[in-house]
Design a protein around this nucleic acid. Sequence first.
DNA 1: TAGTGGTCTAGACCACATC
DNA 2: ATGTGGTCTAGACCACTAA
Lengths: 244, 244
Amino acid sequence: MSTDPSGPAFSPLYQQIKLLITRSLQEGEWKPGEAIPAETDLAARYRVSQGTVRKAIDELATENLVVRRQGKGTFVATHAEEQIQYRFLRLAPDDARPRGMERHFIDCRRMRPPAPIARALELKGAEGAILVRRTLAQDDRPVVLDEIWLPALLFKGLTAERLTDYIGPMYGLFETEFGVRMIRAEEKIRAVAADASTAGVLAVAPGTPLLSVERLSFTYGDKPVELRRGLYRTDSHHYRNTLN
Amino acid sequence: MSTDPSGPAFSPLYQQIKLLITRSLQEGEWKPGEAIPAETDLAARYRVSQGTVRKAIDELATENLVVRRQGKGTFVATHAEEQIQYRFLRLAPDDARPRGMERHFIDCRRMRPPAPIARALELKGAEGAILVRRTLAQDDRPVVLDEIWLPALLFKGLTAERLTDYIGPMYGLFETEFGVRMIRAEEKIRAVAADASTAGVLAVAPGTPLLSVERLSFTYGDKPVELRRGLYRTDSHHYRNTLN
DNA sequence: TAGTGGTCTAGACCACATC
DNA sequence: ATGTGGTCTAGACCACTAA
């Protein structure tokens, strides 16, 4: 019945419920790894039918914000405590099954970010950034060199030591120690030639073609919270992608 | 009722319906671009409720086998007649919106496929293959060099002329002329150095780092029907990917 | 045995497209 | 006015998990 020309903005009930649940996730009402209330409970809480809650949760599950486990409940997704070591890492060995990789942190220091970095992370004014550099290796052969830029305000107190000591994926540390959950990411991939210093770290000849993977990661509300540039050796690994 | 110990193989009704619909799609009962019967009709046909058909179609829609259009119907997905020129091409210009690219076919000839190609395409015995080579260019600057291997049995009569004359994406031609629909694909990406002949075609210096994108495409029943190796210049373009 | 998510139904009503 | 997909409900029953 609305005649508002600027936009009816019709929103289905289940979308509104989804938004409410998302907000609770964001505010930490239910922590990563914990179960959220049963569908029937949520239905009572929001005064809608179970089917409507169900459809909301369905979408949250496909977006990997929650994980359903039949007979047990619905759980807040987490990067920690997972069998999949690196949910966002698409690099796989050419032959075998994906094995674990050894991490080595080169340094972790606070820096004034270059303008493009600050712009990508939407840093206001003179807001600082933290630069982490690390490598991933397999069978003692370096494969990945990462440069990771983080907003200093969100990751106050991050040190190489804490990174080294933490068991599990870095995004798990971000969750448990800093309350920052990575939800989604966009990658831009290029082929580049290894410069002298990169070549040294990755143990290849200067000029060797490397995969350059620039990743911008987002937390709730599409807020960018990490800019990462990875250089991948692809002589015994490859970047995997699936198209639908 | 089954006491088969080898596996209960419980399958929800909507999965069975989904399989039946998929089979009809595969057999061409409804052609690409056409509408499939209304949900209520399918419900009557399969003797289930509309909600069950709905859930089956929901999954087919997320797999991009069909496209729903409110008020109009559900349509068989097609690579032809689409606004998105290349559904599977993830290459985007660094700055602007994705524009169209000019195609140029270098050649199209029947060949005995190398063993790795034959294996990937699951070719039996001495089954032949067709090799298509083409470039994509933007603003008269070559960006992509593709080598495309196809099973000769499926694409009998494919010529460079037909490829050149056809308006629209190549996968559209495959659909309308050969009845082969590309459903899904897997890509393996590496960084490589341009060899002399590639460098000439792409107008770069030999040794220039290029993205090597190896794509294996599947039709219904996860049957591989195309192996494509693309070499991408990434000086003004990049490969885009989204992680969830 | 109880609690959870998963399936299925039947029916009502809404939003969109077309005639 | 009609037909399509989209939303929402209420309730029944199934499958899985854990105590």
